[in-house]
């Protein structure tokens, strides 16, 4: 995951890059002894704070705040996990074995298996490996992150035309960027858009995993995270 070195040539993407939030750190409870439950607690707490960041960040996507409040809610309720997955994916791109949930919180296959996250590990590794092969750039990460909200296929939107326009702006930005950055690969925009089904499938896997953890009642979850999980049930 290289840092952007050249000007993007596209103002929407430059704006998205500028608005990228500071990475969130894991805050394991120092009074709890290390265990699989502690791993899950740390993860759920981290994702709850990351979710808060995603909601704040969404307001800075060009066009998002112009949507009605009802439609902003609908897009976030549908697309929040895909956005979170992209955050984890982008952090994990330069790692071969570990999922990098935060700079100070990385989990390998064995740790995931022990915590009951084996399916999620496998699904995430599959997605990460796809993006590693494509050498996904930071510009593409931020644009895809905005796109997953715009393209979240919520069934309860008030103004589909406004959402279509919101999608079109992001699509045009990505196309414009790829034309300048990858002139030798005219299909790169399409290739990126074709990763969205796998991204959604991975996010659904993650939602299932956290719903199961919630039902098992072994891990306390924050209210915001629960509220957003319930919106997906």
């Amino acid at each position: 995951y290289s840092s952007p070195t050249k000007p993007t040539g596209n103002k929407v993407i430059s704006h998205l890059l500028m608005m990228e939030p500071t990475p969130v750190c894991a805050m394991p409870d120092p009074t709890t002894p290390d265990s699989d439950i502690k791993t899950l607690m740390t993860l759920c707490d981290l994702l709850n704070r990351e979710l808060l960041v995603v909601i704040g960040w969404a307001k800075h996507i060009p066009g998002f705040s112009a949507l009605s409040l009802v439609d902003q809610m609908a897009l976030l309720q549908s697309g929040w996990m895909e956005a979170l997955i992209l955050v984890v994916v982008s952090r994990s791109l330069s790692f071969t074995e570990e999922l990098v949930f935060a700079g100070n919180f990385r989990l390998d296959r064995a740790q995931c298996r022990a915590a009951g996250l084996q399916d999620l590990y496998t699904a995430l590794k599959h997605l990460i490996s796809k993006y590693q092969q494509m050498h996904l750039s930071p510009e593409e990460v931020v644009t895809l992150k905005a796109m997953v909200l715009a393209n979240s296929d919520s069934g309860s939107v008030e103004n589909p035309e406004a959402i279509q326009q919101f999608q079109d702006v992001l699509h045009e930005a990505l196309q414009d960027f790829e034309t300048g950055r990858h002139p030798g690969d005219p299909h790169r925009t399409g290739k990126l858009l074709m990763t969205l089904p796998l991204l959604r499938q991975t996010a659904n896997r993650a939602v299932d995993t956290f719903c199961r953890l919630q039902l098992e009642g072994r891990v306390p979850m924050h209210k915001l995270f629960l509220e957003m999980l319930e919106a997906k049930m």
Binding site: I55, H60, P62, G63, L69, M73, Q77
Partner: peptide
């Protein structure tokens, strides 16, 4: 909306529209 009150509150707070 009542059901999703935290998200509703977060979005209502200091929305700054971006116009490029």
């Amino acid at each position: 909306k009542e059901k999703h009150k935290i998200l509703h509150r977060l979005l209502q707070n200091s929305s700054s529209p971006v116009d490029l």
